[in-house]
């Protein structure tokens, strides 16, 4: 068992991130790019890396209030991500709807459709807040492995 635990500790050092844009205004996406690309914040210190394919992902970051048009596509992409996965809702839109709350065109809050684990509120959240959320997600992912 200790060997397996050591393997898990090793695996938890490199969680790969995947972004789903659920009709976001791109504010949160810019902050996510900032978190990864600007050396000042640098989420890659935690071993995280954005990956291009959902099949490689461990932690999924969802932005945007999940518009009705994108709901189906987002669900299909989400189902392609292998278990165990941790879902992080970035920004107030996926958490509650934000200023789009109760609109006919959005399906927010997204926890009706996806099992969300960590919420990062903010409009947009600052890069350090996103790093804080990702750190929480990594802790949850370690438990699920």
């Amino acid at each position: 068992m200790t060997f397996i635990n050591k393997l898990k500790d090793f695996a938890v050092k490199s969680p790969w991130l995947y972004r789903i844009n659920g009709g976001s205004c791109n504010g949160c996406d810019v902050e996510l790019a900032t978190t990864a690309c600007i050396p000042r914040y640098d989420v890659e210190r935690l071993g995280c890396q954005y990956c291009g394919s959902p099949r490689h992902a461990d932690i999924v970051l969802i932005t945007g209030p999940l518009t009705r048009r994108v709901l189906d596509a987002a669900r299909r992409v989400y189902d392609e991500i292998p278990d165990p996965k941790v879902t992080v809702a970035v920004g107030v839109c996926p958490i509650s709807g934000g200023i789009f709350r109760e609109s006919y065109a959005v399906c927010a809050p997204i926890d009706q459709y996806f099992p969300v684990d960590v919420n990062v509120p903010g409009c947009p959240p600052r890069p350090q807040a996103i790093i804080e959320g990702v750190a929480k997600a990594i802790a949850i992912w370690r438990q699920r492995l």
């Binding site: 958490i95 926890d111 969300v116 684990d117 960590v118 919420n119 990062v120 509120p121 903010g122 959240p125 600052r126 350090q128 807040a129 996103i130 804080e132 959320g133 929480k136 949850i140």
Partner: peptide, 11 residues
């Protein structure tokens, strides 16, 4: 104080 990230249970 921007430490607002939380787990789903505390939403």
């Amino acid at each position: 104080d921007w430490h607002l990230a939380h787990e789903q249970g505390e939403k």
